[in-house]
Nucleic acid binder design. Structure first.
Length: 894
DNA sequence: ATTGTCACG
DNA sequence: ACGTACGTGACAATG
């Protein structure tokens, strides 16, 4: 222990290393849930810790460039001019690297007007000047200019490929590789040139000749002085480009005497800041191997390198012991995992796993419970003062309800929490979240007792308890994240209470007139056959009309029609393109094909619906609360949010959704122009607000203002144009998109947009402001504070960037509308319960709610629903609700 | 598993 | 020069 380690100074060129890492590591594999890219941070950190581990330096510093403007660009404007603009995906990672260094107590140094190399050169010079210290110097850099700093006591470590191979440049190595000693390397570079710095050298002269000259004449100065003596083409070229060479030499000389205000002694490696380092590793989602390696290096032996999986201490409770266990739990928060099944309006529970923060856990075999156990479980589940945490509570809730239990006291739903924190994820799988936020594997330890029989039941109950524990642990972790994202109110007051409502709607389902649906199926089936045969007759053979590939052969090869817009694999045959073809070339095949598409689609929709009708004669969809990044719900199995409505034929399908037995009618209530109203509210555009306050036809009102005519003089054409414009606004519309929508030319569409924005300046200002702010903060926000992260706003890829800009325009509008109708559902549900009405909510279709009306409740329900929907938010414009009632969904909509 | 198409708000 | 409106889900064809 008394042996003194030899002092070693490690200097890193932060910029060049991070830049290399940025290009070496695929960005897709290195980004966090919120979209922060981490490839440069990862690669830099990885190189840093490897060198810390392998070289054991006592002193460390990292040098950074401040900007591209340096004394070199002052002197020679073309210096590094050929380099592409620094991608913002890279720049955004530099502050993270600095935080990483702070947490490791590693100094980083910048000096305006100079490059990182100059800082390193200065420190190397200082370190070598003090010969008594015997300080050894290591320079980790991706910039070859530093080779001039190599001496017997200073070595350059240069990354060869990617971020893992380091080449150790000692004087002997440099001499061997380049043919000149290190201090002469910049002389050689001056002759050869440096492409990455945009410093052209002597054409036709490579490193070999340059080294020969330098050695023969003893240095570049002498080569220049005796330039006449060099014969041949190369000599001629050298004389001709002498100016470049002299300039190169001046620029590639590193500055060694900057006044940094830091001495080598100040660079002693200090104590790391454990909590900020761990926090940053979590934030960057660095786990697994790198996390282990980092912790091993900066804090050897301090943190167990291998993270254990989630563990619980519990077994299946014996018969008649559940009540006692639950009594012992008291009012502690319990992680709850429900085993069983649910869906299609039914469900059942086979087991319950409970876990506590101290590791205790229990599994209840619901199928083998005593009467007392059952009562105890029922009481605990329904007691709102016994707090519970679940992951994705809707399914469990459905199963418990089907079992005759009620559930109360759910204080956190970890799936919803994770969704609010990062709404763009595909899934919120418990195991993934455990890894991401807890850095724990969600696997059950294998039973290694050889003598024991494999007990499947024990494993299942163990897995359930582990999941219960994971949900509990996650809730603590995610609560912080939700707080940080400002999502607590939304989670507690909106998303979580909505779970019960959605479960109820799914369980209730909507009644279907099967005979009517079957009648439509055969009707459209007939039409499908007719159209197919007519199409075959035209071309003289049978093809698969559903195959875009076969259609392309017929349309573009055999019928010789003009090629449409390209897709990845060929040319599009979508309805839009075919419609366009048909206007110039009304070939009968095209017409039959289009009609065939239409009717086969309707038939398919009907067939799909028929397959999902349950024995109770109703369809029970599943609503998803964590799919749409904007905050909307989605619906599957079947999707009841895309039942046809736009054509008369399609609407006939809605005749099949009918009032169920024991009820009087269906009622639908929808918000009119909800998105434009939100736009008016958010933009505070006075004219738009006024247009809504008149209460008259909104599109006509706005058209009258844009075209500056009296409302009664607005023509249908004017109204149609402004309507398309109004709808397009929230989508980030382009002149092209608008022209496509309206079938006018892009120039006219562009003029229309200009007119519109001149009239509604507040909207234009709002829209540009939204994108600017999102670019600054990294996210957009709805009226209720729902965030969507859009890292691509700063992408260098134009497509991605512009795509993100359109999402930024749309997310606050669509998302606020989603917030609003969710609040309306909560208010309506509460009011319904309080009113004693029997009517019930069945469906939500983004801006519409569908109810089943009990006998004699029609008027009361309408009043209640109108009041609760209109009062869901206090906007600067009124929320208009239109309501209709009928025997079917189709009738109700009239 | 991905692509193309088309239904909805 | 290039692609072109936001958000979903279902189905069939095709790799």
């Amino acid at each position: 222990m008394t042996e003194t380690t030899r002092p070693r100074l490690l200097l890193l060129d932060g910029h060049s290393l991070a830049y290399r890492a940025f290009f070496a590591l695929p960005v897709e594999n290195f980004s966090t849930a919120t979209g922060q890219n981490t490839n440069a941070v990862y690669g830099f950190t990885s190189m840093l810790v490897n060198v810390l581990r392998d070289e054991q330096p006592t002193h460390v510093a990292v040098a950074f460039d401040v900007s591209r403007q340096t004394f070199r660009t002052e002197e020679y404007a073309e210096y590094k001019a050929k380099r592409n603009k620094t991608p913002s995906e890279f720049s955004s990672q530099l502050p993270l690297i600095e935080r990483m260094l702070d947490s490791f107590s590693i100094r980083y140094i910048k000096y305006p007007g100079y490059e990182a190399d100059d800082i390193i050169a200065t420190l190397v010079t200082q370190a070598l000047a003090d010969e008594t210290s015997g300080l050894e110097v290591l320079i980790l850099t991706g910039d070859r200019d530093s080779i001039q700093l190599v001496t017997e006591r200073s070595t350059v470590l240069y990354p060869m490929r990617g971020v893992s191979d380091l080449s150790r440049m000692t004087p002997a190595f440099v001499e061997d590789k380049y043919g000149v000693p290190p201090h002469r390397y910049p002389e050689l570079a001056a002759i050869v040139g440096e492409q990455s710095d945009n410093l052209p050298g002597v054409p036709g002269v490579g490193a070999g000749f340059a080294a020969k000259w330098i050695n023969t004449y003893d240095g570049l100065d002498n080569v220049i002085a005796q330039a006449d003596k060099i014969t041949g083409k190369k000599g001629e070229a050298f004389r001709e480009h002498l100016g470049d060479v002299i300039r190169n030499r001046r620029l590639n000389a590193l500055v060694r005497d900057l006044d940094l205000g830091v001495r080598v002694d100040d660079l002693v490696l200090g104590e790391w800041d454990r909590s900020s380092a761990l926090e940053l590793l979590d934030e960057l989602e660095f786990r697994g191997e790198l996390r282990t390696r980092i912790l091993d290096v900066v804090a050897p032996g301090e943190d167990a390198p291998v993270e254990p999986g989630i563990e619980v201490d519990g077994t299946t409770l014996a018969h008649d012991t559940v009540a006692a266990w639950l009594a012992e739990v008291g009012d502690a928060t319990v992680g709850l995992s429900v085993r069983g099944s649910w869906g299609s309006g039914t469900g059942r529970v086979t087991g319950l796993a409970l876990a506590l923060a101290d590791g205790r856990a229990a599994y209840v075999d619901v199928e083998a419970m005593s009467v007392d156990d059952d009562a105890a479980v029922a009481a605990w589940l329904s007691d709102p003062s016994r707090p519970k945490v679940l992951h994705d509570a809707k399914g469990p809730l459905l199963a418990l309800t089907a079992q005759g239990w009620s559930l109360a006291g759910v204080v956190e739903d970890t799936a919803l929490a994770a969704y609010l924190v990062a709404p763009d994820q595909r899934s919120y799988d418990l195991a993934d979240l455990s890894l991401r936020y807890l850095h724990r594997e969600l696997t059950v330890a294998e039973d290694d007792d050889q003598g024991m029989l494999f007990d499947e039941d024990a494993n299942l109950s163990q897995a359930a308890m582990v999941q219960a524990r994971a949900a509990l642990d996650l809730s603590a972790e995610l609560a912080d994240e939700v707080e940080k994202a400002g999502g607590r109110g939304l989670l507690t007051d909106v998303e979580m209470p909505l779970v019960g409502i959605l479960a109820g709607m799914e369980q209730t389902g909507i009644a279907v007139d099967i005979e009517h649906l079957e009648g439509l199926e055969s009707h459209f089936g007939d039409l499908v056959r007719e159209e197919a045969e007519a199409a075959y007759a035209v071309i003289g053979r049978e093809i698969n009309l559903g195959s875009p590939k076969q259609l392309q052969v017929i349309l573009f090869d055999e019928l010789g029609m003009p090629k449409t817009k390209r897709t990845k694999t060929g040319y599009t045959t979508d309805a839009d393109a075919l419609q366009k073809l048909a206007t110039t070339n009304p070939h009968p095949f095209l017409l039959h094909l289009l009609r065939h598409r239409e009717v086969i689609r309707l038939r398919q929709t009907i067939e799909g619906l028929l397959k999902t009708v349950q024995p109770d004669g109703r369809i029970h969809t599943t609503f998803h609360q964590t799919i749409a990044a904007t905050g909307r719900l989605s619906s599957t199995d079947p999707n009841l949010q895309n039942i046809p409505v736009r054509t008369e034929e399609g609407r006939r399908i809605r005749e099949s959704f009918v009032v169920g037995d024991g009820y009087d009618s269906l009622m639908t209530a929808d918000y009119s122009q909800i998105e434009m109203r939100i736009m008016a509210h958010l933009s505070e555009d006075a004219l738009l607000i006024e247009a809504f306050r008149t209460g008259r036809d909104f599109h006509a009102e706005t058209a009258s203002r844009v075209f500056d005519v009296a409302p009664e003089d607005v023509t249908p054409e004017m109204r149609a144009k402004i309507k398309a414009m109004n709808y397009g606004l929230a989508y980030g519309l382009s002149a092209f998109g608008l022209s496509q929508q309206l079938g006018i030319d892009p120039g006219e569409a562009s003029g229309l947009m200009t007119e519109y924005f001149e009239t509604f300046g507040g909207i234009r200002d709002y829209l540009t402001g939204v994108v600017d702010e999102a670019r600054r903060t990294g996210f957009t926000e709805t009226i209720m504070g729902r965030r969507r992260y859009l890292p691509d706003l700063t992408s260098d890829n134009r497509m991605r960037r512009e795509g993100a800009e359109r999402m930024a325009l749309n997310a606050p509008i669509q998302g606020s509308a989603a917030d609003l109708i969710k609040v309306a559902m909560l208010r309506t549900d509460t009011a319904l319960r309080g009113s004693g009405l029997r009517s019930r909510m069945l469906l939500q279709v983004h801006d519409e709610l569908v109810f089943e009306v009990a006998d004699g409740e029609s008027e009361a329900l309408e009043v209640l629903v109108r009041e609760q929907m209109a009062g869901a938010a206090d906007l600067t414009v009124p929320l208009d609700v239109s309501v209709g009632t009928g025997r079917s969904w189709h009738e109700a909509a009239h």
